[in-house]
């Protein structure tokens, strides 16, 4: 299975390459990709440099152009597709049907991957994207159980990539508007969930408060570990009970599923986290490289090593990990 790693910056890309990524995925420095945060991503020139650096070392480069353009922004998405294609990327990761159609007609030689933001959770939807846009691969949303992933894989007309590690979206990606309900941007429209300019932290007598566009997302007692205020991980009041009404802050970690994912024919594992530091990328890619190598050499006796789990726990959101939707009881 191919290891696909996040690179939100040139330093992150370098460590991903050094630690053994098979592919890196990157984005332009604007809202054409779903990790549009200040200080992240690549200008056109940097993209050129990044592609050279990775490809010279045998590592593929995928460019995410995976948000949904509205009419006034359409030309930026079109330009992003043209620019990335002209630079010789190994694949474009797209979600919008208009963008996919444009890329497949204009650059038929460039591989298209369906972004997780394309929200295809079943093989009929995959057939649709494959028939019309000739996608070669799709990234599955993090809402399916491992049994469901197996069902999709058995009938999928394209290669599948699944998330292996990182922050956990518990909503079907591409169909979540919690962020734009409270701010004016969602991943679909603005390329960001909980855009940083709307986030406020405030020490109060009741503890540290995190707010998103004024809305209290959570309140932490002194000394407690505070998480980035995404709405699905906030603590809310439901009929007098205050708890993580939607989901606890936690990271997805599927090391132990490697044999199962390989068995059902998954072609690539994606590590989440273009918004994370080079140190995170280094730690996570190193562990996953070792794990995948070990599985390749001794598939029959593969078991995650405790030190891998410990290393990953350190960089996990909420310092805890879960199998997420892959694991039936979680559903």
């Amino acid at each position: 299975m191919e290891l696909v790693c996040p690179a939100g910056s040139f330093p992150a890309l370098k460590v991903a390459v050094d630690e053994g990524a098979d592919a890196v995925y990157i984005g332009f420095r604007d809202n054409t990709n779903a990790r549009h945060f200040a200080g992240l991503n690549f200008s056109g020139d940097q993209l050129h440099q990044a592609i050279g650096h990775a490809q010279d070392r045998g590592v593929k480069v995928f460019v995410a152009i995976n948000t949904y353009p509205q009419p006034r922004g359409w030309k930026n998405w079109q330009n992003a597709v043209d620019q990335a294609a002209d630079l010789g990327v190994d694949a474009l990761i797209c979600a919008d049907m208009g963008v996919l159609e444009y890329a497949s007609r204009r650059h038929p030689g460039v591989s298209l991957h369906l972004s997780v933001q394309g929200s295809a959770t079943n093989y009929e939807a995959l057939r649709f994207y494959q028939r019309h846009f000739n996608i070669r691969r799709a990234v599955l949303p993090r809402v399916l159980s491992i049994q469901q992933v197996a069902q999709v894989a058995a009938q999928s007309p394209v290669d599948l990539e699944v998330f292996g590690f990182g922050s956990l979206c518990i909503m079907a990606e591409g169909r979540c508007m919690l962020s734009s309900y409270v701010t004016d941007q969602s991943p679909n429209t603005g390329g960001a969930c909980s855009p940083a300019q709307h986030v406020r932290w405030q020490e109060t007598p009741q503890g540290l408060e995190s707010r998103l566009n004024g809305v209290l997302v959570d309140r932490y007692p002194t000394g407690a570990k505070a998480g980035y205020p995404v709405l699905c991980k906030g603590r809310f009041d439901v009929q007098g009970q205050v708890y993580h009404a939607i989901e606890e802050p936690t990271s997805l970690n599927t090391l132990e599923l490697i044999p199962k994912l390989a068995e059902i024919g998954i072609k690539a594992i994606k590590i989440e986290g273009r918004q994370r530091s080079p140190a995170y990328v280094q730690q996570v890619v190193r562990v996953w490289r070792q794990a995948l190598d070990q599985f390749r050499t001794t598939p029959g006796s593969f078991e995650p090593k405790p030190r891998w789990q410990q290393a990953l726990d350190k960089v996990s959101e909420g310092a805890q990990t879960t199998l997420g939707a892959y694991h039936r009881p979680w559903q």
Binding site: A172, M177, I246
Partner: peptide, 21 residues
């Protein structure tokens, strides 16, 4: 009420501490 998101999880069952299945 605006439909804003769809999840694998059931938030109503979660409130009642019931497993989704």
């Amino acid at each position: 009420y605006l439909p804003l998101a769809y999840s694998a999880r059931c938030m109503t069952a979660r409130y009642h501490q019931l497993p989704k299945d």
